[in-house]
Amino acid sequence: MILMDELIIAYLDNDVDHPYYLDIYTGQVILNMDEAYTGEPGIDWDDEENEERYIEIPKISSDQAFFVMTKFAQRTDSDPEDKLFAALNGYKPFRKFKDKLYELVLWDEWNKFEHKYAEEAVQSWLERFELDYNELNEKYNNNLPFLQSEE
């Protein structure tokens, strides 16, 4: 897995109980939860250095996710009957949209579309914080052998 993939996973995980942070010293993505859940100790926020070391990774909002689904429904030629739009109107639009993706065999196309949107959002976030992705990715890759040898 590459750093961008991990950042995208964190961005698309809209569970508020899953706070993800980017370690700007190592380039690692950290899920900051109880050690019993992750197998790793959480971030020690009592250490003042950590306030500068870790940056919270934003999450896609429900409104943004709905917007992305709408944009996908607008652009796909594989849905001439507008079943995706119909799924977005009414009760449980997220669930119905995903069901229609399976029905229309558009799941792979959707994943690519959503991934591209998320990558652009993550790139924009990195730019706002003036973080150099290439530098972070190099740190990330330099820490991979260490992390893999621990597993």
Rank of each mutant, 00 (worst) to 15 (best):
L3G: 01
D5R: 10
D5Q: 15
D5H: 14
E6I: 00
L7G: 05
D13H: 04
H18D: 13
Y20A: 11
Y21I: 06
I24L: 04
Y25K: 14
G27R: 02
G27V: 03
V29G: 05
I30M: 04
L31E: 12
M33L: 14
M33E: 15
E35M: 10
E35P: 00
A36E: 13
T38F: 02
E40W: 06
E40F: 09
P41T: 10
P41E: 14
G42H: 05
D44T: 05
W45H: 07
W45C: 08
E48G: 01
E48K: 14
E48F: 10
E48H: 09
E51I: 07
E52K: 06
I57T: 05
I57E: 06
I57G: 10
D63L: 07
D63M: 01
Q64E: 15
Q64N: 07
A65L: 10
A65N: 11
F72C: 13
Q74V: 04
R75L: 11
D77L: 14
D77W: 09
E81C: 00
D82G: 09
L88M: 15
N89M: 05
N89K: 13
N89Q: 13
P93M: 07
F94N: 04
F94Q: 02
R95E: 12
K96G: 01
K96Q: 11
F97P: 01
L101N: 04
E103D: 13
L104W: 03
L106T: 09
L106I: 11
W107F: 08
E109T: 11
W110V: 04
N111D: 10
N111L: 08
F113N: 01
E114L: 12
H115Y: 12
H115I: 00
A118D: 03
A118S: 13
E119I: 06
Q123M: 14
F129C: 09
F129W: 14
N134D: 15
N134H: 11
E135A: 10
N137D: 14
N142A: 05
L144W: 02
F146I: 13
